[in-house]
Nucleic acid binder design. Structure first.
Lengths: 356, 356
DNA sequence: AGCTTAGAATAAATCGTTTCACCAGAGTTT
DNA sequence: AAACTCTGGTGAAACGATTTATTCTAAGCT
């Protein structure tokens, strides 16, 4: 099987009757080429179906026009959407993107970070698996890195994230205002900074309502067991607030399983919006994160860094939208409109960086 | 800002006191190098934090170890899962993957296909936007291509897809058996081969039940209007079967909006499983596609092609699982167990290729 | 000892581009 | 007319790795 070769720039040059340098100049839009030669080159390119070889081009020019993206899990719709937006933006800026998933595993993430250096990317956008990201970044890595969504333990990184505290606080305040006596707050682990920020936001904003934190860990089976134990225990809390995507689904199913009705037996709210939350009856009150905007901000920042802007690390917090649905209001009348906290425009605000 | 350079193989060679060729030999596991030299090289590599430059490596070695993936939309969970599985498999085989999304747009797909050639991938896995894929594949493309999920109009491609006809047929037979008089089948367009196969499967397997096809097109607003029109018209069909992901969500919402209850007023089933379908009450009867297995098969096939296996194009059809839930059974007693069509293992079957 | 052979390391050629230094010729200035 | 600037084009040197061909050394055989 004689695998046919792609045509090279030399073949184009021969066919057009010019030098390879001229072909290169035409292809890269150098202004010093006469229209006549340009036409001949373009014709030859078209006839041969020539496409530049990125390896050779990158090697010689030493300009990458390439950025790396590392996410914890591509199957998570939020991250998928993040990547999809980035991909679009990168294309507009004429950059290529190398996307890898760490499959929710810090070791794999470290491995990907090491391997991705082989591409010589001009920059990196990373949603870290956990706070210990800094330790996993290889020493010799000199390209700019922008972190997104998850807050690292160490300072010194550019960061685009959401305002976890205030948003979670808004939900808690809403529950408080509805008159629930106590609220069970569920999350994987307070060691994850996002969860910690959300929990602190809840604590900071409740007035009358008692709140109680339950960490169910990363293992689904074990978490479900812990949760069921607590939910079978009396007194049942008046409300439940789940702080991340994984626990939300688990919680929702567990409640259904042991026959708790929402919001009759218990009110239910969730951080992280998922599609089904507006489909079930009643709809689930959630905090919707501005994923697309997060991607836009991360890209804009990385692009600035890649094109040489130095300066102190920047932290930006984006506003989330709180979407009140049927799963939380006590008075069905209020559900209709006046509780609509959502709909405020997500707004950007710069903050000085302050770790943990 | 003096951007520091990555160390090159030459620097490693100097530090280890050997030639670059020896360094290359060590790094690529060539057997003809003494343990002593190997150690010295490895030490130097570690000390400098050296990582190979893929551009240079590829350019010289002319072996790609790189495959391209083109999907219509990364935010679709099914495709995201497909890509995620591929990424994992590729890594196991020590391949890199470059992933691009066509954003549901045939022109963008054509553009991506053109651009992706610059990477000189050893092969391509594509989920095409539509049947006219062959026209969009650039002429000079000589790497093997494996198509997945969507059936192209033209023959001559390796293809991994699901058994649309039989699976849709199984759902139709179930509805028929439940005694529904007539069934409205909804899909975007019969021009899309998957939808056509599903519709034909429905037609082929119903005995008593009358079936009626409604094509609602790709535009959501217009589709919703068509659908609402039909659902307000009397007589209302006894059952509704939605043939693809997009229409399913639309249909479900439209039914809710005009106050139809499922399955009281109308039974409801869907091709394409989504997460929420087991969360809503009643659960939605669906056809679950074996996405991971589709990815595995596609990768296995591409790998064979990339390593030189020639031979006629292969078509493989994977079995779907039919998941009966509360949205369709007439007799709630039957819901419990005996209707469980699901659970049969997905099985692989080779078929001669037959276009259209 | 003389001749072959195998093993281990290297020098140099090479992959397909981009870029740099240079050149021929036309036009312009002194 | 000699000495300049442009202008549009080219040959050849990189880029950083891999591969090929070559050298050198030491061991193995008569």
């Amino acid at each position: 099987m004689s695998r046919q070769q792609s045509p090279s720039i030399k073949m184009v040059a021969d066919r057009a009757g010019v030098s390879v340098a001229t072909v290169s100049n035409v292809l890269n839009g150098k202004p010093t080429v006469s229209p006549d030669f340009a036409r001949r080159v373009n014709d030859a390119v078209r006839e041969l179906g020539y496409v530049v070889d990125l390896s050779a081009s990158r090697l010689r020019s030493r300009k990458a026009q390439l950025a790396g993206v590392v996410v914890p899990d591509l199957t998570n719709p939020m991250f998928a959407s993040f990547v999809s937006t980035l991909e679009h933006l990168a294309r507009l800026a004429d950059y290529d993107l190398v996307v890898v998933s760490a499959r929710n595993n810090a070791e794999e993430e470290a491995d990907r970070l090491r391997k991705i250096r082989a591409w010589r990317p001009a920059g990196l956008i990373v949603i870290p698996c956990d706070g210990a990201f800094a330790e996993r970044l290889p020493d010799g890595f000199f390209a700019p890195v922008v972190l997104a969504d998850r807050i690292p333990d160490a300072a010194g990184f550019d960061l685009i994230a959401v305002d976890n505290g205030p948003s979670a606080g808004a939900v808690a305040a809403h529950l408080d205002q509805q008159g629930y006596e106590d609220c069970l707050v569920v999350g994987t682990s307070l060691l994850i900074s996002n969860i910690r920020e959300r929990w602190e936001g809840v604590c900071a904003s409740v007035k009358r309502m008692r709140v109680e934190m339950l960490e169910i860990g990363i293992d689904d089976a074990h978490g479900a067991q812990l949760l069921e134990e607590r939910l079978r225990h009396r007194p049942l809390p008046g409300a439940l607030f789940s702080l991340d995507q994984g626990t939300t689904l688990l919680t929702y199913c567990t409640m259904a399983e042991i026959g708790l009705s929402v919001p009759g037996d218990i009110a239910f709210a969730s951080f992280d919006e998922m599609e089904w939350m507006r489909l079930v009856t009643p709809g689930i009150t959630t905090v919707r994160q501005p994923v697309e905007e997060m991607a836009e901000q991360a890209w804009a920042l990385l692009l600035r860094r890649m094109t040489g802007s130095a300066g102190k690390p920047v932290t930006r917090r984006l506003r989330c939208a709180v979407e009140i649905r049927g799963s939380t209001p006590r008075n069905p009348l209020e559900e209709a409109g006046k509780l609509k906290l959502g709909g405020r425009k997500w707004k950007l605000q710069d903050e000085p960086y302050s770790p943990e």
